[in-house]
Nucleic acid binder design. Structure first.
Lengths: 212, 212
DNA sequence: GTCTATAAAGAGATAGAC
DNA sequence: GTCTATCTCTTTATAGAC
């Protein structure tokens, strides 16, 4: 009942959470710079000035949602890497978790990927470091799979990491939750495609006659 | 020497071309909405008002560079599809041309991919249609390769097209012309990875002992 | 084709009442 | 925690001289 005048540290599912959700959707759709504080306020049904009771600056919204989306996907990755056993399984599960987590948090994650440049320099450096840390988890998983002999070694782990993230990340810009594919299905699709490739392979039966 | 008062239709390498190049670099780096006409003018060493001798609105710059980048990549694709013979070769060459053309026109192409939403609705619809037309060229090439038996058919041509464009398009957001890979090398890398996959394959020799 | 000067609108953010 | 009212700055774009 005492009234702390500082920021409430663990305020969940309140006006603040609704504020961040509404802002994330607008930022993803229109971009950070093109979204006005008026529009964000209107989406919540409050006046523009009331926003500034919850945040200090418009950039606070962007910063917090970038941190939040990266914390979510990093924690999903940590969980996968802790539980999976073989190195191919870890890589497949990591791909799957990436799609389910990022598309399940579509607005914030897309904003983090595309609007990072709109942050003040020191904050964008901090967010970029978090993002790079996550991406290196993926690279380490690829390296492990190379060492275990299940991933080709004629392409560097770095090139494979960049290629894999290409394959995964662009999805969020065309993904339609009401469309044909669920995030989980896309995770399976990409894991299979990344590992096995798009080329047709002779079946085992068809291959018997032409071996060596 | 006669003075046409309408738009000069084929003015190349003039102030106008420099204007579009400067604007494209700013739009790619900062985003369309965050770039001011002052900054564009400053990049050219002219006054803000002078811009409006060359364009009517800031959006004109965006519209023209989107059209331009799509015309370039479409024409590169048409060329590849006209000359290549077998369907696998056409697909490989198309991937290669996509990387060389898009990264060779990095500023405009990145802006077209990322800032399309900042266009007025009717213009964004028009640009999106051009982009979709190009992407369907890729899908048709994939379908041809499936019919020819060189691309797997357990994934639809549409899913393969979307996956391939994921793999290719994201590159432009991290590509560094001064960095380690040329656009041509990336084209080779992606063509090989897309078709063959990242999984290690037993060599023919190693496979002999463990067959069936 | 470029300039100075300025118009007109919209932006982020604050003051202070309730 | 929300409001009305307003400040201050920046934005896009135009007017009109050179």
């Amino acid at each position: 009942m005492s009234a702390p005048s500082a920021d409430p540290p663990a305020q969940r599912d309140t006006t603040k959470a609704r504020l961040y959700d509404a802002a994330a959707e607008l930022f993803r759709t229109k971009g950070f710079a093109a979204t006005t504080t008026r529009e964000i306020a209107a989406a919540l049904g409050i006046q523009k000035a009331t926003l500034y009771h919850h945040i200090r600056r418009k950039e606070d919204l962007l910063y917090e949602m970038c941190r939040d989306s990266l914390a979510r996907i990093q924690s999903a990755a940590d969980e996968v890497l802790a539980e999976s056993s073989d190195s191919r399984g870890r890589l497949v599960n990591l791909i799957h978790a990436h799609m389910v987590t990022s598309l399940g948090d579509r607005d914030k994650h897309a904003v983090m990927l595309a609007e990072l440049r709109s942050l003040p320099l020191d904050e964008s450096v901090e967010i970029f470091a978090l993002r790079h840390e996550y991406e290196l988890c993926i690279e380490r998983t690829i390296t492990d799979a190379q060492v275990a002999g299940v991933v080709r070694t004629d392409i560097t782990a770095k090139d494979l990491r960049l290629s894999l993230l290409n394959l995964l990340n662009w999805t969020i810009f065309w993904f339609d939750p009401a469309g044909g594919r669920t995030p989980s299905e896309l995770g399976e699709l990409y894991a299979g495609l990344f590992l096995e490739g798009a080329a047709a392979r002779p079946t085992a039966a068809a291959d018997l006659g032409t071996s060596a």
